[in-house]
Amino acid sequence: MSQTRRDVLASTLAGAGALMLGPTASLASTGPAHPAFYFGADLSYVNEMEDCGAIYRRNGKPVDPYQLFADTGHNLVRLRLWNNPDWTRYSTIEDVTRSMRRAKASGQGVLLDFHYSDDWADGDKQWIPQAWAGIPTTEGLAAAVYQFTFDTLMLLAREGLMPHMVQVGNETNKEMMGTKDWAWETRRTDWTRNAALFKAGIQAVRDAGRAAGSAPRIMLHIAQPENAEPWFAAATAAGVTDFDVIGLSYYRKWSREGIDGLGAAIAQLRGRFGKDVVVVETSYPWTNDGADEAANLLGPDTLIPEFPATPEGQLAYLTRITQTIISHGGSGIVYWEPAWVSTNCKTRWGTGSHWENATFFDFRRGNEALPAFSYVRHPYDWTRIEAVKG
């Protein structure tokens, strides 16, 4: 990172004390004590949506969405970070620090999601950042991952914004930082290379935590539960073991597992690898309609028969999946992306949102808060913990 960029980034950060809460710290008033559990929301789109004119409402009145999530019992905000995107001014370090200040002001912790890409990294693709594309060796790439991760966290730490948790990669089913000429469908992961990159990111988080005196937890994240156990077995065999949390994406549309299968996978992962497990992405539509020309990514093919595409069906899905996570020893749930509402702004693929039918806000009523918010305070049975299988 250049000194000029370092100075620019430092100047964008507002001071505040470090937020290293236990995961239930902001839930003290939600009911009887229960084991530590993350109730999270990915709010990476909020700044952009508000800049595009979106107004979020509760009981007809405009609200700060960060405060709304905190007031309804959420305790963790997930935020994505791209390296140097040239196609958007959002999910940059400047934008993320703006969001982190808002999360801190609301009393919530932050899960910072390093994509290690200038664009979306997901279960189907992992694009290397342009600035690193010419680095010829694994050692050089690992050094770049380390320095970027360490510098970013130290910038945040100096301003009291060290995150509670850090994702080293996003949905890293495929090999990290690949190129578009790779035969992705047939390529076998080079675990010597892959492990070196993960270890570099993990070491950077550990070193930054020690230097700052405020150590984030470390998550590794895989899309869809059926892919997780073989991936973590391969990672373990390659020496990638110094992490704290297994993160899972679960979208029924793209997973062959039902909700019971998700629960079984959580128990199996807990037993085999001894890590906390968090469903760090899930979502469900409250309608099949849309508010704009942008096609909904979660359409009728997403639906589970017992949960119709209604506000009540969305809430029922969330309470069912949360109880399943709890009953199988999981440690949290994060909803993606409850605030990506429809506006007049354009995406690469159309005007509006591709997710407004799966948010927590009703576009038919001026983005009024939906019943889904109440899932956090549902009276879950915290005694129903299934035996963890080894």
Results as ranks from 00 to 15, higher is better:
Val46Pro: 06
Phe39Arg: 07
Asp289Pro: 02
Asn194Asp: 15
Tyr90Trp: 11
Thr4Val: 14
Asp292Asn: 15
Trp191Phe: 15
Tyr38Arg: 10
Gly261Pro: 04
Ala143Met: 11
Thr236Ala: 14
Ser106Asn: 09
Asp122Cys: 13
Gly140Thr: 13
Tyr116Met: 10
Ser29Leu: 15
Pro163Trp: 03
Gln167Met: 10
Ala295Ile: 00
Leu27Val: 09
Met177Cys: 12
Ser249Glu: 06
Ala105Lys: 10
Ala211Lys: 06
Gly274Leu: 12
Thr287Trp: 03
Asn357Tyr: 06
Arg98Phe: 07
Met165Asp: 06
Glu356Val: 05
Pro23Thr: 13
His221Asn: 13
Gly274Cys: 12
His115Gln: 12
Gln67Ile: 01
Asp362Leu: 08
Trp336Asp: 09
Asp71Glu: 15
Ala18Val: 10
Asn47Lys: 05
Gly350Tyr: 07
Asp260Tyr: 02
Lys174Pro: 01
Glu306Arg: 15
Tyr45Cys: 02
Gly107Asn: 05
Gly22Val: 11
Tyr380Ile: 05
Val145Thr: 09
Ser327Lys: 06
Glu139Trp: 14
Ala369Trp: 01
Phe232Cys: 09
Ala157Ile: 00
Arg206Gln: 08
Thr24Lys: 09
Tyr38His: 13
Arg98Gln: 14
Trp184Asn: 14
Leu79Arg: 03
Thr359Asp: 02
Ala372Glu: 07
Lys180Gln: 12
Thr186Asp: 13
Ala14Asp: 06
Leu112Tyr: 02
Pro216Val: 05
Gln323Glu: 08
Leu153Arg: 00
Ala105Glu: 15
Gly140Glu: 12
Val280Gly: 02
Arg80Pro: 11
Arg188Gly: 08
Val376Asp: 09
Glu337Ile: 05
Leu21Tyr: 06
Tyr66Ile: 06
Asn344Lys: 04
Glu368Cys: 01
Ala237Thr: 13
Leu298Val: 00
Ala105Phe: 09
Thr138Lys: 14
Gly366Ala: 02
Trp355Asn: 03
Thr72Leu: 13
Gln130Asn: 15
Thr319Ser: 07
Lys125Glu: 11
Met49Ile: 03
Leu43Met: 14
Thr343Glu: 00
Ser2Met: 08
Ser117Asn: 15
Ser91Gln: 14
Ile326Pro: 01
Glu48His: 06
Leu153Asp: 03
Gly366Leu: 03
His354Gln: 02
